[in-house]
């Protein structure tokens, strides 16, 4: 129970990685606010399991983010931990990618994280410190064909992590990023649809491409976030952590 008495906000907490992260932080003793864009049974379920609170807002809307964080702080107090986990991902060949949708990737992933950090900072400063874990992506490190928007947004998060690591480190607000490889999340079902194969087949293919021979489990990312939020990670700042089963070299 390394996080007893701590408060945490997890964006995109209704499913996938965010759900696993919220559950793990709660299991370590944290009080968790579960953000998602819209109310849903999935969010309610995570809130119930974490005994946390729902925090509904579209992170790409700065006013909505400010209102949401104010409400969370009213209920839980200033936040110790922010996990920027939300993501929007669409893929298309670069020149064919609809410009509005292209920018939607950037607005949600990069700007949304900026809005969240800006909103929680005053509270973390009042507490005299904080931990911010940004979920980036391996695509932001090595790139990915037909994912310029998503990869650019994630690479932007990586640069922002390094910069905020330097900028906020002196205030004991430690910003780090996780760039996971292929994880077993609902996104894989979308990938399967796109590829015209079954969900099982897409998982088998990705596993076969990974040196470790399997895709990652959301619980593995959640364990890393819990470590980053713990006292023992106090010297990690501005770092990009890459749990990816060895796929850093990219496919093939």
């Amino acid at each position: 129970m390394r996080l007893e008495g701590k408060t945490a906000l997890v964006s995109g907490g209704g499913q996938g990685l965010g759900r696993a992260i919220a559950l793990r932080l709660a299991a370590e003793g944290a009080r968790v606010a579960v953000n998602d864009r819209t109310p849903s049974e999935k969010v309610d379920e995570v809130v119930e399991q974490t005994k946390g609170v729902a925090a509904i807002a579209d992170v790409s809307d700065p006013d909505a983010v400010n209102r949401m964080v104010a409400e969370v702080e009213e209920r839980l107090g200033n936040l110790d931990v922010l996990v920027a986990n939300h993501a929007y991902m669409t893929m298309a060949p670069f020149v064919e990618h609809d410009p509005d949708d292209w920018w939607r990737n950037v607005d949600v992933n990069l700007s949304g994280t900026f809005f969240l950090i800006r909103a929680v900072l005053p509270g973390m400063r009042r507490r005299g410190g904080g931990r911010i874990a940004i979920i980036a992506s391996e695509f932001g490190v090595v790139g990915w064909a037909n994912a310029t928007a998503y990869a650019a947004s994630k690479a932007g998060l990586i640069s922002m992590t390094k910069t905020l690591g330097r900028e906020l480190g002196p205030e004991n607000i430690l910003v780090n990023a996780i760039a996971p490889g292929i994880m077993d999340t609902p996104q894989l079902d979308v990938d399967a649809d796109d590829a015209g194969v079954s969900p099982e087949e897409i998982r088998r293919r990705y596993a076969a491409e990974s040196p470790i021979g399997r895709i990652g489990r959301p619980e593995e990312i959640a364990a890393l976030v819990a470590f980053l939020a713990s006292d023992g990670a106090g010297a990690l700042v501005g770092q990009i952590l890459q749990p990816n089963g060895g796929t850093t070299r990219g496919p093939g």
Partner: peptide, 19 residues
């Protein structure tokens, strides 16, 4: 104990010396 999806990676707790 828990870094079961890391392979060939480096983690650097360095107080910000190398970012």
């Amino acid at each position: 104990e828990e870094g079961t999806y890391f392979a060939g990676q480096t983690i650097s707790p360095n107080a910000g010396a190398a970012i």
